[in-house]
Design a protein around this nucleic acid. Structure first.
Lengths: 241, 241
DNA sequence: GCAAAAGTGTTTTGCGTACACCCATGC
DNA sequence: GCATGGGTGTACGCAAAACACTTTTGC
């Protein structure tokens, strides 16, 4: 791939045929928010070598399949959801990362409404785990999780993507708790509320929380729930305090 | 990779052997700064199919080689430089992106001092191109270049990495012109100087520019030239105006 | 002396941040 | 009535932004 004379494709293919021996996988870090905690959807590894370890949801990319499509497929198969927030983060390709051979994996993270799937969760050994309680995982998945969490923290501070983790209607308290769970910090309630209301991203749906043991909060809906998944780059705003 | 019973590695390998038919490449977007312009190092494609198109510097990842090592190897082979700033950006894996078969490429960008290599530039059809003047490229390399440029713009606004593009000693004017070239904006000279001098990242080397047709500016050296390549994440500071 | 860029400070403004009290509801 | 969180406004400090004139050098 680096000589001076022009090659035909046939030459290129035959010269490099021994390189076409790798596999590509996608691994999805699927985040959810429940019980005031950031959680991630994991499956028991199906490899004996990692028999007691948890693993990210992933699969090999088919020979005639795009990586993005493969990650959507994995999500659809495991959660029943399509039309989700999904973003490529990093590619992990250490030579010895997979015991079965040279498998390079492209890591994605996804944000879903944890209440909204429930579907294929019971069968398979599929469970939600609090992100903070995961210490060891199969393969290099612990590192992948860390990288995706950092990416989430960084994105969330500049782009309004957290709405993908919430039900359609939510209170400001839920929204703030979610930010706090992701960022691992405490935020000032008044400043937080002020900021979000001024952003004009929320619509007051004129409903109140139900079944709470205290004064119920107002519920809001995100104005551009679907739209922002693709245009979020334009809305760079720091969420601080 | 998604059934319920445990598998041995041997089972896994044999079941999935048909997936091990892909190749991985790395492509490096090598940025340099010269003549007040941001430039990128390109090579004439060695494929007949793209005989008049420019291509990024890349190569197939060897079967027992890590992707990061492969990108360092490409850089070393083409510029003679090691110890450079190099960062993974994104992986491009569209099914039909390469005419020779399923080749998924991991894109990196690199920042080098354009004056400091010169080495292997003459042979091969290797040339520096102003980033703004590149319109078509071989494969999907135009898209890769755009993605890496966006990444550079974003990083540069928060981390002091631009020093990798400058010679050891430089004037504040050069530094500012570099920021302007990368970001495509004009910056206020007084605010820019103030900011950098207050950051305390620069050492005044007590020398003046040579061979300029006007009052010569003072030269500075970056205090942590080597160090910051690995610790730059800690220094998140917005470069604005 | 003139062109070209170096060098230098002040003022304004907006945003982030800290902070305390009353209100509505469930029990 | 009390516990729990909902809801609200103000004051301060800092950093970004806007802005103009004098100085030094080469020609």
């Amino acid at each position: 791939m680096g000589t001076a004379t022009k090659k035909t494709i046939q030459q290129l293919v035959s010269e490099n045929s021994n390189y076409f021996q790798m596999a590509i996988s996608v691994d999805c870090v699927i985040f959810g928010f429940d019980n005031n905690e950031l959680k991630v959807l994991l499956i028991k590894s199906d490899l004996e070598e990692f028999h007691n370890e948890w693993s990210l949801l992933g699969d090999l990319v088919h020979l005639s399949e795009n990586p993005d499509a493969a990650s959507y497929r994995v999500l659809k198969e495991k959660t029943g959801l399509d039309d989700v927030f999904l973003e490529q983060v990093h590619t992990f390709g250490e030579v010895d990362r997979h015991p079965a051979g040279r498998v390079i994996t492209i890591a994605y993270y996804s944000l879903i409404d944890i209440k909204h799937h429930k579907l294929k969760l019971s069968h398979n050994e599929l469970h939600w785990h609090p992100v903070n309680e995961i210490h060891t995982m199969a393969f290099d998945h612990r590192k992948i999780l860390s990288t995706c969490l950092e990416q989430l923290q960084s994105k969330v501070s500049e782009h309004p993507i957290v709405f993908n983790l919430l039900p359609e209607k939510f209170s400001l308290r839920e929204l703030q708790t979610l930010y706090e769970a992701i960022l691992g910090t405490k935020l000032d309630r008044r400043n937080f509320r002020k900021k979000f209301l001024m952003m004009n991203w929320l619509t007051d749906v004129n409903e109140l929380e139900q079944n709470v043991t205290h004064r119920p909060g107002r519920l809001y809906r995100f104005k551009m729930r679907k739209h922002l998944q693709t245009t979020e780059r334009k809305n760079a705003v720091a969420i601080t305090y």
